[in-house]
Design a protein around this nucleic acid. Structure first.
Lengths: 338, 338
DNA sequence: TCCAAATTTGAAATCGCTTTGAATGCAATT
DNA sequence: AATTGCATTCAAAGCGATTTCAAATTTGGA
């Protein structure tokens, strides 16, 4: 069922039918109704490729995901948020997965050259993100999920990682803890550095010295967290509190604590960062988990919104959002036992 | 940079350039080389929309995900697998998210009518899946991840849920357990029914009566699993073993066991189904978790392959794959203490 | 009643590619 | 020298929509 067929069926020209369907003013209301009704009845939908070619817009936003880092559980949540907003706008999400940084760069070039998408969402930026620079150079609109320090202004949405960790650390210090371990992300990533800054700020505000042995950097998996926490718990004096970078990390730390014969919430405290997964609830853990909480699904939804604004012409430089992070205290963070 | 520009730049016609780039035989080898070199140097890539319009193929496969059920942690793994295979073929994955069944059906109709994708991956089928029937009717190629009983033959890839649960149940029975709880998926889903069949088969083979109180049906979240397991552990006699539908379920059950003052691997056994997440390792749990193991990432990769075969002309009826599921025994499943 | 203005419709150009069918040049054959 | 055949190349016609520009129709005012 092409536009031509529909037009012939109606005894009208393609022009009129196209206008009627796209809400142009210069078409008789009666005609418009007739067209709309017939199109709906016959299930007509414009061919996406033809429409895109004619309009120059591709009606899709791109998401390039590096398998190793970015395809974790948070991604499906982010996708759910983005999809929810994009769906109502009939814009699709085009997912490309890559295995390496080189592949990722190539993927962006390919996507840009073939004009497959109108905009891109860029994840997990480094402090000086080359991908962002490249996208600027290619003049393809994008929104950064996170922040970077490259010269030119870019559109971004980020959560206040520094503030979150600073508050969490301060809270643990208030509870009397002095040996606080930080299980952070990979060095170089902006969020990792931001969290580190918050951690240092809180420590130095109380004059508590920093012990490098209490800091770990890696991807957020239960296994790596388990090993790191296990090693840290063997230190003397051992850490009395953990800051876990994600809920997966928290699960690993939790097991290390148990395996060391200790009890979470009594012998050791923990505050974890929670992206809020519907299938893994901090409130329902045992003991319930204190968290720095920031729903990544909502971030996805909002980034979709920002992309729509970008496509509507809003300048990239005007799009900045820094979201505060909630500190939710539960049973896993308790005063230090003397 | 359009084909036209490239052709003018080379002093050739669009026809010849197009043929040279697409590997047609009737072009001089010297010309082909010159074209290829120049195209690469200038970073030419055909406009995706134009290419699609001209060829009639959209170069994309569709994935419609219902937020509630299908956007769990397993989806990012599946996506990673699919993306890995599709990426090399320069086929993109088009993700649409929906909130309800009605929306999902509408999404399929829209996608089909607008010819946005060449094929679709259908997830989480019911025993009599209407969506599959609709896609057949719309004549859009698809591969089912799972199985359904509708009349016509469809292409599918599924894991042997029945066999997996039957073996896991039998193993627990061998260990002396008689009160074995099954935390299963939503009723109606094929995999749920298949697992139930395996469970019943193992029980009846030993003449162990079925107790409806020991069966729960729901989505796989830690919270729901926690509540179900908690309730079951209050029964007298209480269950001595659990079959958990997913790793998330296992985490919930685990907490319920702890909260009841019991110990996993000693007072209570558990075997969980593991889709294999890189960020949550059954081997590294404490105690380590016995699982029925089936890497969903590989399933994604294979389904991508099957889709390519489908697009290459292989009949749907010839595409069926039933994957065996590995039973991996670890510390969480132990003989019943007398 | 007539003419200008406003409303409504349509023919054809366009988007950037592939592909059909025809044309060109050149070597081999008769 | 004329004919055939082959290897290359190209002009132009799609693909299915939007959009420009022109034409047809209706309306309103004098």
């Amino acid at each position: 069922m092409r536009l031509k067929d529909l037009a012939e069926h109606l005894g009208l020209s393609q022009t009129t039918v196209s206008r009627a369907l796209n809400g142009y003013p210069e078409v008789n209301e009666a005609t418009r109704l007739r067209v709309a009704e017939t199109a709906a009845r016959l299930g007509y939908r414009p061919n996406a490729s033809a429409l895109r070619l004619a309009t120059g817009r591709s009606g899709a936003v791109g998401l390039v995901l590096r398998g190793a880092d970015e395809l974790g559980p948070h991604m499906s949540e982010f996708l759910a948020g983005m999809g929810g907003r994009m769906g109502t706008e009939e814009i699709d999400i085009l997912v490309t997965t890559v295995d390496s940084y080189a592949e990722e760069v190539a993927a962006y070039r390919r996507i840009a050259a073939s004009q497959k998408v109108d905009a891109i969402v860029l994840h997990g930026p480094t402090l000086n993100d080359e991908r962002a620079e490249m996208l600027l150079e290619l003049k393809i609109p994008f929104v950064l999920h996170g922040r970077t320090n490259i010269g030119q202004p870019v559109a971004w949405l980020d959560i206040d990682n520094t503030g979150a960790v600073e508050r969490a650390t301060s809270h643990l210090l208030d509870l009397g803890h002095r040996r606080i371990a930080l299980l952070n992300g990979r060095k170089g990533r902006t969020f990792t550095e931001h969290r580190e800054i918050g951690y240092f700020a809180a420590l130095s505000a109380r004059g508590v010295p920093f012990d490098p042995a209490l800091m770990g950097n890696s991807v957020f998996t239960d296994e790596i967290a388990f090993r790191m926490a296990q090693a840290m718990l063997e230190l003397r004096p051992r850490p009395t509190a953990f800051l876990a970078g994600s809920m997966m990390t928290a699960l690993g730390v939790f097991r290390a604590i148990r395996q060391a014969g200790l009890e979470l919430g009594r012998d050791v405290s923990m505050i974890a960062h929670d992206d809020v997964f519907p299938y893994l609830n901090a409130d329902n853990m045992y003991p319930s988990m204190s968290t720095t909480r920031s729903p990544i699904r909502q971030a996805g939804m909002r980034i979709a919104e920002l992309i729509l604004q970008l496509l509507a012409g809003k300048p990239m430089a005007d799009i900045h959002e820094l979201w505060p992070v909630e500190l939710v205290l539960r049973e896993s963070s308790r005063p230090l036992l003397q």
